[in-house]
Amino acid sequence: MSPLILIALGWIVAFRGAKVNLGLQGQMIVGGIAAAYIALEGPSLPPALALIVATLAGMTAGALFAAIAAVLWAKRGVNEIVSTLMLTFIAQQVLLWIVRGPLHDLSSSAFQSRPLPSEYRWPALVDRTPFTAEVFLTVAAVAIIVFVLNRTVFGYKLRLAGENPTSARHAGVQTVQTIVASFVLSGALAGLGGTALVIGGERNVLSGGFAGNIGFTGIVVALVARNSPVGCVAAAALFAILDTGGSVMQVRADVPSEMIFITQGIIVVLVATSVILTRRLETRAASRRGAAEQEDAAVR
């Protein structure tokens, strides 16, 4: 669930600057690769330091990967929707190659890496429960993002730059730099999500499908939460339940688990249209009331 939340946060941060980061999946994959690479090929480190280094490596890789798209947009005006998606397809191919080539575990019949060393696991906060440091990390990430977006100068500038770039520029905000920074932060969050998948995953290996579809489902989570960082937690819980339910449904009722994607798509379309439609109905009702009051006034 926490990778979902991290991806959703990544989408929200970029969206505050009116940028559409559809390549969170790719940034997440690159982050996962970097973390796995450090864990498998890097020097042996004491447990706490090992986790910090791997996490930072994953975040940096995700940030740099997002930076490609951000710089292309800032310098050359390249549409970020297209560039981030192209980068995602490239990242996916690189991942498929890495688990068959450089990081391939030859003792396994599957295309995957060796299991990560034992120091690369989230320490449990309460023994034998899923309450590991990952939960703490996710809560901290949500809190930090809420603070950065709502209580800092950077967050304020970002909102200005996203909502009205012209007036932001006139107010002296360096809109391009601000938006690039938010995009890089968005990539770092996705990279952190990828790291969490590798380190916190059940099998503790890097495989071709380790990222699943989380980079896109996370976007759906953010959309359903209507871009509220706190709302993401509830929406991510809903989608985690949906996901588990989908697997159970496949086993018990022979309904293909792809059903959950259909559900996700329908939910987003409904959320996107209902917000606008209700607003429109409200204004219509309000203007009717206004007209009635005017008539009343005229009669009196």
Binding site: V20, L22, I81, F216, I219, V220, L223, P256, E258, M259, I260, F261, I262, T263, Q264, G265, I266, V268, V269, A272, T273, V275, I276, L277, R280
Partner: peptide, 29 residues
């Protein structure tokens, strides 16, 4: 969604990509 309801076109597009992938994979399965 985009013309009648005036919804965000990017958001609906993202949803349709997921919906289309899900529908086709579901039906094929």
């Amino acid at each position: 969604a985009s013309i009648q309801a005036g919804a965000d076109q990017i958001v609906v597009g993202v949803a349709l990509n997921i919906l289309g992938a899900g529908l086709s994979a579901f039906a094929f399965q």
